[in-house]
Design a protein around this nucleic acid. Structure first.
Lengths: 185, 185
DNA sequence: GATATTTTTTGACCTAAATCAAAAAGTGAG
DNA sequence: CTCACTTTTTGATTTAGGTCAAAAAATATC
């Protein structure tokens, strides 16, 4: 769903609002494997996934670790860069061909100023992200590799069809070999 | 620091604003071990810690697990209850004698309506929480028990002085025995 | 369509940390 | 001050899952 339609599914927008939003956001296209945002940058951009799968990732001890998978109709922004003026640890990569809409945080502020009712939507998006983080934390903490995989199968079966095993393994906090063994149970 | 002073450290408030805030919030006192919010309730309350240490916790397979430690000048609200109308998994307990200020989410909305400049502060508090969660996640993921303890010693040495070993162990995602062994290294 | 590259699976081995159990130390109440 | 209870430490044993290595399968490239 396009960004404007997503917003309209929560609040009503006038035609002028839509024009304003369109003039403050950019549609972008990426190919599988493309890096949309590199780690260690101070990017101020918010990305809305219109179609396709992506992932947030970071590097640790030379290893590439998946932080989150993103699917259509979801947002991602580098909290450390936007709110704490630090280079973000988290990069963004296309898992497959991807359509998205991007805008700078400063443009979000302009849009919120013009369309104050959007503020609640933004608040809700932040809450969603907190819930996602909490749920994932809950999933990992004191849970066996098998249980983690089961939970993922139950909650996000679709993701498994769109991304590589290695990405899923690091997302679940286990090695690729362990995940492979679990799958052939 | 009292709530009003905390807010004043970010934005200016008129005397009337202060009165309005005071009439929409409640000061509370708890003793060590008191449960401030039980898990599995749909509490709509936000708590601001004025003085003392507290912890968020949840139960899993009969085990009590610390989710987060809270110290003075920090907020906590049950995101799942407030934003998703679900019973929250997370309880809140005093680690020691505690002074706090509580208010319902609906009162926050009233305060935001009257003092719109507070909205940015609230947004920042959500961002802080996201950062905290992310950092903790980063700390746990693929990190040895020893490394986790070291990070904690570095980042929150004060907390270790105020809470029991068992609470710290579950916070770090390790058993109490392992933590004890690490400490006597 | 053959070759190169990446991804996934399989195997053997090893280690960090869990589990179970019990002793020791610390804290509190009457 | 003593008895009860809680928290922390120590010990012995087990195991899930990591590591290293190489084969097999899948995918991409020319």
């Amino acid at each position: 769903m396009e960004l404007v339609n997503y917003i309209k599914s929560h609040i009503s927008l006038t035609d002028e609002d839509v024009l304003f939003i369109n003039s403050h956001t950019q549609k972008e296209f990426y190919h599988k494997g493309d890096i949309i945002r590199a780690p260690h940058t101070k990017s101020q951009k918010i990305h809305y996934i219109h179609k396709g799968y992506a992932r947030n990732f970071y590097e640790k001890n030379g290893k590439d670790i998946t932080y989150f998978f993103l699917k259509d109709n979801s947002f991602t922004l580098p909290v450390d860069a936007v709110y704490f003026n630090a280079p973000t640890k988290y990069g963004l990569q296309a898992e497959e061909d991807l359509q998205l809409t991007s805008f700078k945080y400063s443009d979000l502020l302009l849009m919120l100023e013009r369309i104050p009712r959007m503020a609640h939507l933004y608040e809700l998006e932040m809450a969603k992200f907190i819930k996602q983080l909490s749920d994932k934390y809950y999933l990992i903490q004191f849970q066996s590799a098998q249980d983690r995989y089961n939970s993922m199968m139950e909650k996000y079966p679709d993701i498994l069809l769109h991304v590589s095993l290695g990405h899923v393994a690091s997302y679940l906090g286990i090695t690729q070999e362990t995940l492979s063994r679990i799958r052939t149970k």
